[in-house]
């Protein structure tokens, strides 16, 4: 239980350093440390699927960020902040904090699953019959690829469409075609 508080303090310190530091490289590394803390937290909460994805995406995102942004020119914000804007943002943050406190009061206790309060929840059916009906020992896999496979098809389609579109726009052949005189 106490390990979560240590991880939380570690992540908060990493986030503050990532915002406040002047060097771009150390800021990116602090973001990566924050993601590492989050993946450790997922691991201690017994969600290894999310932990694997989190740590891999953090490593990949770290390298991509360093590669693509480290040689660009930097823009610095200078000058004083406006008083009105600061007050409004502080008030909005305080209201969101109060709403968050209200929401946290309605959550169940730490460690008790939320579906345990509902007797006929669909997730209980998945846990009971998932292995017999689909043959997958991993319940997460049986849910995302058998019971809720429509969702995975939509995710894959979104990823496919977005990246194919970016590739088509950024390809090299179109530039060569535009340079030809008969076009």
């Amino acid at each position: 239980m106490y390990i979560f508080y240590f991880l939380l303090i570690f992540m908060i310190i990493a986030a503050i350093i990532a915002i406040e530091t002047k060097n771009l490289l150390s800021s990116v590394i602090c973001i990566s440390a924050l993601g590492f803390g989050a993946s450790l937290m997922f691991l201690f909460l017994r969600a290894p699927d999310i932990a694997i994805t989190q740590i891999v995406v953090d490593i990949l995102a770290l390298i991509i960020l360093i590669r693509s942004t480290i040689s660009r020119d930097l823009t610095f914000i200078s000058g004083d902040k406006e008083f009105f804007g600061t007050v409004v943002s502080v008030v909005i943050i305080f209201i969101i904090f109060l709403a968050g406190v209200k929401v946290f009061e309605t959550l169940p206790d730490f460690g008790t699953a939320i579906f345990a309060r509902v007797p006929n929840a669909a997730s209980q059916t998945y846990i009971k019959e998932g292995l017999e009906k689909t043959g997958a020992a991993n319940i997460v896999s049986s849910v995302i690829l058998d019971y809720r496979a429509y969702d995975t098809l939509g995710e894959a389609t979104v990823l496919f469409t977005a990246i194919i579109g970016a590739t088509v726009i950024l390809r090299k052949k179109a530039k060569k075609l535009l340079e030809e005189p008969d076009l």
């Binding site: 990949l60 991993n138 896999s141």
Partner: peptide, 18 residues
């Protein structure tokens, strides 16, 4: 081994790309 242990297609694809 996505249907046996906490792995899967998304995480494995990221490994292939990395």
């Amino acid at each position: 081994s996505g249907h046996l242990s906490p792995c899967g297609g998304f995480a494995g694809g990221v490994f292939l790309a990395s």
